[in-house]
Simulated scan of single mutants.
Amino acid sequence: MFIQYSMTPEPVTIGPDLPVTEAAAMLSQKSFRHLPVVDEDGRLLAMVTDRDLRSACPSSVLSHDDRAQVLEKVKETRVREIMSTDYVTLHPTSTLDDALLLFKTRSIGALPVVDDQNRVKGIFSLNDMMAAYRRLFGLGEKGSVLVAIEDTEDRPPLGVLVTALERENVVFTRLIRALGEGREPDMLYLRVNTMNIRSVHRIIEQAGFTVHIPVVQP
Rank of each mutant, 00 (worst) to 15 (best):
L126R: 15
D17W: 05
K73T: 12
D86E: 15
S59V: 01
V38A: 10
L101W: 00
L71E: 13
T85H: 10
A23C: 12
Q206Y: 05
R135G: 02
V48C: 09
R202F: 00
L158K: 07
L18W: 05
S55P: 02
I82M: 02
R174G: 04
A99M: 04
V74G: 03
N127Y: 04
L190H: 08
L161R: 06
I108M: 11
D66R: 12
D39E: 04
L100D: 03
L101Y: 01
P157W: 05
L18F: 06
G140E: 02
G182Y: 04
S63P: 04
V48T: 13
F2I: 04
S199H: 13
I176Y: 13
L175I: 08
H212A: 11
L35Q: 12
G138P: 04
I176C: 07
V37F: 09
I14F: 07
E166G: 00
F103H: 05
S60W: 08
E76H: 11
L188W: 13
Q217H: 13
P11K: 11
M129P: 05
N127S: 12
E40T: 13
V61W: 11
P185L: 03
G138F: 05
A207L: 02
V88P: 01
L35T: 10
Q217E: 14
M130D: 02
A178E: 14
G180M: 06
G143E: 03
P156G: 00
L62W: 10
R167C: 03
V216Q: 08
K121N: 12
P19R: 05
I108G: 04
D186A: 12
Y87F: 15
Q29T: 14
V145L: 09
V37I: 12
V37E: 09
L101Q: 13
V145F: 08
S63E: 11
R191I: 03
A131P: 04
V38H: 05
F103M: 07
D66W: 06
D65N: 02
A68I: 03
Q69W: 03
V120I: 11
V215D: 11
F172W: 13
R54C: 07
N127H: 01
V74E: 01
T13S: 12
L136S: 05
S94I: 00
M26C: 03
E72G: 15
N196L: 00
V200N: 09
V215R: 15
T194Y: 07
P36F: 04
T93D: 15
D52W: 02
K142E: 13
L136I: 02
E22W: 00
L188Q: 08
N118T: 00
L18P: 03
R78C: 08
P9N: 08
A164V: 00
S28M: 14
L165V: 05
T8I: 14
S144Y: 09
S125W: 06
F137M: 10
A207R: 01
N118G: 03
